[in-house]
Lab assay of single mutants.
Amino acid sequence: ETIMEVNLLKGPKGLGFSIAGGIGNQHIPGDNSIYITKIIEGGAAQKDGRLQIGDRLLAVNNTNLQDVRHEEAVASLKNTSDMVYLKVAKP
């Protein structure tokens, strides 16, 4: 597993990826991690090219996303300014 830091500039459609996982909404049984499950065509993440489906999202800005509820992860992604710092684990 490789840890990678990505600074992503939000586009008109936001960050351009979808997530799944978290406490109460496990993407993988027994694993509370938050995973990237979709990269949106023409979105910021696709244009940047570094994020991939299956990457594990560890942090957004200063918010640690390990062992959080799905709703908390979504809220932390929404409550960001235009430049967003992401910390991901690549499988």
Rank of each mutant, 00 (worst) to 15 (best):
E1F: 15
E1V: 07
E1K: 14
T2N: 15
T2K: 15
T2Q: 04
I3Q: 04
M4S: 05
M4I: 12
E5C: 05
E5L: 11
N7Q: 10
N7D: 13
L8W: 03
L9Q: 09
L9P: 11
G11S: 09
P12Q: 10
P12I: 07
P12W: 08
P12F: 03
P12V: 05
K13G: 07
K13D: 07
K13H: 08
L15W: 06
G16M: 01
G16N: 01
G16E: 03
F17Q: 00
F17K: 00
F17N: 01
F17G: 00
S18F: 06
S18Y: 14
S18C: 07
A20S: 11
A20H: 07
A20G: 13
G21C: 03
G22N: 02
G22W: 01
I23L: 10
I23W: 12
G24I: 11
N25M: 12
Q26L: 10
H27P: 04
I28R: 13
I28A: 07
P29S: 14
P29V: 14
G30Y: 05
D31Y: 03
D31F: 03
D31E: 13
N32Y: 05
N32K: 05
S33V: 03
S33Q: 06
I34N: 01
I34R: 00
Y35L: 05
Y35H: 04
I36Q: 01
I36N: 01
T37V: 12
T37A: 13
T37R: 07
K38P: 00
K38A: 15
K38T: 13
K38V: 09
K38H: 12
I39G: 00
E41T: 15
E41H: 15
E41A: 11
G42T: 07
G43S: 14
A44N: 12
A45N: 01
Q46I: 04
Q46H: 07
Q46D: 10
Q46T: 07
K47L: 13
K47R: 07
D48T: 04
D48C: 07
D48Q: 04
D48Y: 02
D48G: 04
D48P: 01
R50K: 10
L51K: 00
Q52M: 14
Q52S: 14
Q52F: 05
I53C: 13
I53K: 11
G54A: 06
D55F: 11
D55R: 01
R56V: 15
R56A: 10
R56N: 03
R56F: 02
L57Q: 01
L57T: 01
L57E: 00
L58N: 03
L58D: 07
L58W: 05
L58C: 07
L58E: 12
A59F: 09
V60C: 08
V60R: 00
N61C: 14
N61V: 02
N61H: 04
N62T: 12
N62G: 13
N62Y: 07
T63L: 12
T63D: 04
T63H: 15
T63E: 14
T63N: 15
T63P: 00
T63V: 15
N64A: 08
N64M: 14
L65E: 01
Q66D: 06
Q66T: 10
Q66W: 11
D67I: 05
V68H: 07
V68I: 14
R69N: 14
H70G: 12
H70I: 14
E72A: 14
E72V: 11
E72S: 09
E72W: 09
A73V: 10
A73H: 00
A73E: 00
V74E: 08
S76G: 10
S76W: 13
S76V: 13
L77V: 10
T80R: 05
T80D: 05
S81D: 14
D82N: 05
V84S: 06
V84E: 01
V84F: 04
V84G: 02
V84P: 02
Y85H: 15
V88A: 04
V88T: 11
V88E: 01
A89N: 08
A89E: 08
K90P: 03
P91W: 06
